[in-house]
Amino acid sequence: MLDRWTMPLTQRPLTAIARHLARRGVTPDHVTLVAFIVGLLALPLLAFEVYWLALVAIVLNRTGDGLDGALARHVGQPTDSGGFLDIGLDFVFYAAVVLGFALADPERNALPAAVLLFAFIGTGTSFLAFAIMAARHDLNRPHFQRKAFYYLHGLTEGTETVVALVVFCVWPGAFPALALVFAIACMITTATRLWGGYHTLKALSSGGLSGTPDTKG
């Protein structure tokens, strides 16, 4: 929901860093992989309840997630393989963070973590399923030109997820309640994406739409 406003704000600093990295021969895939490895450190850190260090790992991972795309655009090398690697590792990272909280306090956190992972599966599958169909119908990305995939808007997107992960780390004792609230928001996103995606693709199949549909979910 907030990505369309936050993404333009982050492009200038990310591009400045990307120029610096490009001069040193760093590739976008290098950034993706390093960011993922750093992000995975959050899992054991959360499990051992070292929340502030886990927060650092999460922030560095999310910074790298934006930086790899900025670097790819700067060097003129945005690729399908890079976009695939980026989004695939993103979902593994999100699941790892939730698992970390479950391991930190299984008695209190396990069930809310399971519910949140269930909700993440819904947002992830609706995201990727529509991206596949959008590619088949040659839909472009009117609001997210910098994304590797076309997808429907929703209540919970990248910005909201980052904010949620940060809040979890700042107030770990409130994780059960916070996770359930965010899970509900993710389920709403899944429902609106499924509804919007179904009707968008149905209209395309019947010839009712052409070009760039309004996909505000």
Rank of each mutant, 00 (worst) to 15 (best):
A203R: 11
D90Y: 10
A183N: 03
A129Y: 09
T200A: 02
F93M: 14
T200Y: 00
L53T: 12
A113L: 07
A22S: 11
T125M: 14
N109M: 08
D3N: 13
V115L: 15
L201F: 09
K147H: 15
L209E: 09
L117I: 15
Y151I: 00
P176S: 05
F91M: 10
T200C: 07
G207H: 04
L194S: 05
R73A: 03
L40V: 06
A72P: 00
R12Q: 15
G76A: 00
H74D: 10
G207V: 00
P142F: 12
T10C: 14
F101D: 03
F144H: 15
Y51W: 15
A57G: 04
V59R: 05
T156K: 03
E160A: 07
A164I: 01
F36P: 03
T123L: 10
M133E: 13
V181G: 11
V166H: 04
L117E: 06
T32Y: 08
R4L: 12
T6L: 11
G158F: 10
A54E: 09
G217V: 04
E107H: 13
I184L: 15
C186R: 02
L2H: 12
A119H: 06
A18N: 07
G88W: 08
A47G: 13
V170Y: 08
L14A: 13
A177D: 14
R19A: 15
A174Y: 13
P112D: 12
F149C: 01
L155H: 05
F118E: 02
L201W: 06
V163N: 04
A183I: 05
I87L: 12
L55K: 01
H137G: 06
L71F: 01
I17R: 05
E107D: 15
D3S: 11
L9I: 10
H137K: 12
G197S: 09
L111H: 07
F130N: 00
T159V: 11
T63E: 08
L45N: 05
P213G: 02
G66F: 11
I58S: 03
A102K: 05
L43S: 01
G122N: 06
Y151V: 04
W52A: 14
T189I: 08
T32K: 03
G83Q: 02
V181K: 02
T10M: 15
H30N: 13
T200H: 04
F182V: 06
F84T: 12
Y51P: 04
A174I: 10
P13M: 12
P13T: 12
R193H: 11
L14E: 13
H143W: 14
G64T: 10
V170P: 05
D29H: 02
T200I: 09
T192G: 01
K202S: 14
R19L: 14
T192H: 14
V59S: 00
